[in-house]
C-alpha cells in the first residue's frame, strides 16, 4: 500500500500546484450552491409568472447532475494528471517501480473515484433539492463513480495532450446527456440512447425499476472494459 499512498500523494500535490485543476475540484461545490439556492429562486420567479410549477418536476434531474459532477470532476482532474504524466514519460516509469501499472491506475483512477463517493454524498446532503434515502445515495454514488471512470478513460484514450484532453472532456459530456432523456422523452424513442449508462441511471431513479439499475451497471462496466485496453496501451 505504501507505493499507492505515495503515488496518490503525488497526485494531490500536482492538483495543488495546478490552478485549473483547483478550479475543477471546486466546481461541484459552486454547482451545489447554484442548484441549492439558484434553482428554487428561478422556480419562484417562473411559477409566479406562469402560475404553475415549471422546474419542480425536474428537481431530481438537477440533483442527479450535482451528484454526477463530483465524481466527474474528480475523474477529469485525474485524467488531466495522467495525460501530463504520460507527456513527461512518468506513467511508463512508474509502471516499472514497485507501484506497477495496476498500482498506478489504482492511485490515479480508483482512489479519486472512491473519494468522490463520500464527497458526492456530503454535497447531496448539503445541496440537494429533493429528499434522497441513504440507499439511493449510495447507489447513485457508485453509479456516478462508474460513469465518471468511463469519462476519464475516454479522455486519456483519445487525447494526445492536455489541450486535447480538455476538448475530449467536453465531448464526453455528451455521454451525460443520457440523464436528461427519460425526463423529456417518454416514448420508446428514448431507448435510442440505450448505450449510455447515464440514461439507465436516470431511468432507475425516475422509475425505481431494478432492471434499469442492472442496465446502468452493465453498460458502465462494458464501457470500462472496452476502453481500458486502449487506455492502458496509450498510457504505458
Amino acid at each position: 500500500m505504501k507505493p499507492i499512498s505515495r503515488s496518490f500523494g503525488m497526485f494531490v500535490r500536482q492538483i495543488a500546484k495546478d490552478g485549473m485543476l483547483w478550479g475543477i475540484g471546486l466546481a461541484p461545490l459552486l454547482l451545489g450552491v447554484m442548484i441549492r439556492f439558484g434553482v428554487p429562486y428561478v422556480e419562484t420567479v417562473l411559477s409566479g409568472y406562469f402560475h404553475r410549477s415549471i422546474l419542480v418536476p425536474y428537481y431530481q434531474l438537477f440533483d442527479l447532475v450535482l451528484f454526477l459532477m463530483t465524481a466527474y470532476m474528480f475523474c477529469f482532474a485525474s485524467a488531466m494528471v495522467m495525460l501530463a504524466e504520460r507527456d513527461e514519460n512518468i506513467a511508463q516509469y512508474l509502471a516499472i517501480t514497485p507501484l506497477g501499472r495496476k498500482g498506478y491506475v489504482f492511485s490515479r483512477l480508483c482512489v479519486p473515484v472512491l473519494l468522490s463517493l463520500p464527497a458526492s454524498i456530503v454535497l447531496m446532503l448539503c445541496f440537494s433539492l429533493t429528499i434522497w434515502p441513504m440507499r439511493h445515495l449510495l447507489e447513485a454514488a457508485i453509479l456516478m463513480g462508474l460513469l465518471s471512470t468511463v469519462v476519464a478513460l475516454l479522455v486519456v484514450s483519445f487525447s494526445r495532450n492536455r489541450v486535447e484532453g480538455v476538448a475530449v472532456g467536453k465531448l464526453s459530456g455528451l455521454l451525460i446527456l443520457g440523464l436528461v432523456v427519460p425526463y423529456f422523452i417518454e416514448s420508446g424513442l428514448q431507448y435510442m440512447v440505450f448505450f449510455m449508462p447515464s440514461f439507465w441511471i436516470a431511468s432507475y431513479f425516475l422509475d425505481g425499476n431494478i432492471m434499469f439499475l442492472m442496465s446502468a451497471l452493465i453498460t458502465s462496466v462494458l464501457w470500462i472494459l472496452v476502453l481500458f485496453r486502449k487506455f492502458s496501451t496509450k498510457l504505458f
Binding site: 505504501k2 513527461e88 514519460n89
Partner: peptide, 24 residues
C-alpha cells in the same frame, strides 16, 4: 529510459525523494 521521466514542476531533490519513497 532514453527520454527523461521527471516531474517538471518539482525540484530535482523532490523528484528523487518521491521516486525513492516508492521502494522498501
Amino acid at each position: 529510459f532514453e527520454f527523461p521521466s521527471l516531474y517538471e514542476k518539482l525540484t530535482g531533490r523532490e523528484n528523487l525523494k518521491f521516486f525513492a519513497s516508492l521502494y522498501k
